[in-house]
């Protein structure tokens, strides 16, 4: 019962969250010849390093005019040097539209998380309960403490630390934490711990009634949770790529 996908059905794939480091090319202006010369020069310094790497184009320092920004030429030039452009970071709406036209992925810029490019993220912020989100001041990643029930349709997001919920997490609610998740009430919604890939993150709850639990991208849905620790106090952790549910009183 510890199988991460033990529905009995054979799935052709499984979605997991991944955390990879990428090389970003910070573009100041674009001129086909200048670009190719500079690229060739860089590659000649370390030919093996650049072979078949994924690359993102960072537009945050771009000072040229938008019409010169020819992503097809950029992609083509890179391809000739065995570099694969996979997306752009930052940029204004017009630049991002051009990038999308060239089938590039759009990554948020460093200061761009709250902008309309991601309306869903903003929405979920609005619907978070207006709780005094008490933060413990010491330590690098303060825990987010929620003292009200997390209701259906609400999303609590802790991009850095742990989340502690003192009440229930209702069906249809979602909590996401980079660290651990503690729920001192029934966990009926979705709980995703270690969303940035921390495999040591755990989920603790007083009563496991969840729709989905996930640690570092390994998840189990309600159906797969019924036989082990259902409606009792448990912790959920990752062991050898498998989600393991253990009763809290035997921990």
């Amino acid at each position: 019962m510890t199988d991460t996908a033990s529905t009995g059905l054979a799935h052709s794939f499984q979605l997991k969250s991944a955390n990879v480091s990428l090389t970003a090319l910070e573009l100041y202006y674009f001129d086909q010849d200048d670009f190719e010369n500079a690229l060739r020069e860089k590659i000649n310094q370390a030919p093996g390093f650049f072979r078949d790497i994924p690359l993102i184009i960072s537009l945050e320092k771009y000072e040229g005019i938008d019409s010169e920004l020819d992503f097809f030429k950029i992609i083509g030039t890179c391809r000739r040097h065995q570099i694969h452009v996979i997306g752009v970071r930052g940029g204004n709406d017009d630049q991002r539209r051009l990038a999308r036209g060239a089938a590039l992925a759009l990554l948020p810029g460093s200061g761009q998380r709250e902008k309309p490019a991601e309306p869903e993220a903003e929405q979920s912020q609005e619907e978070s309960p207006q709780t005094p989100e008490a933060a413990t001041s010491d330590g690098p990643a303060p825990a987010k403490i929620i003292s009200q029930p997390v209701r259906s349709g609400q999303q609590i997001h802790a991009p850095e630390g742990d989340i502690v919920v003192l009440g229930p997490v209702q069906a249809g609610a979602e909590i996401l934490a980079a660290g651990n998740i503690h729920v001192y009430g029934p966990l009926r919604g979705r709980a995703l711990a270690g969303i940035h890939g921390n495999e040591a993150a755990r989920i603790f709850c007083q009563s496991l009634e969840a729709e989905l639990v996930s640690v570092a991208g390994h998840y189990k849905i309600s159906e797969d949770l019924q036989d082990n620790g259902w409606k009792s106090a448990v912790q959920i952790q990752l062991r050898d790529d498998l989600l393991v549910v253990t009763p809290l009183n035997k921990a």
């Binding site: 609005e126 619907e127 978070s128 309960p129 207006q130 009200q148 029930p149 997390v150 209701r151 259906s152 349709g153 609400q154 209702q170 069906a171 249809g172 609610a173």
Partner: peptide, 21 residues
Amino acid sequence: VRDSDRILGILQSKSRRAEMG
């Protein structure tokens, strides 16, 4: 019950009392 839970969440976050703290 699920819909009531949803509306309770909205009362907590979108009412004037919530917005004014």
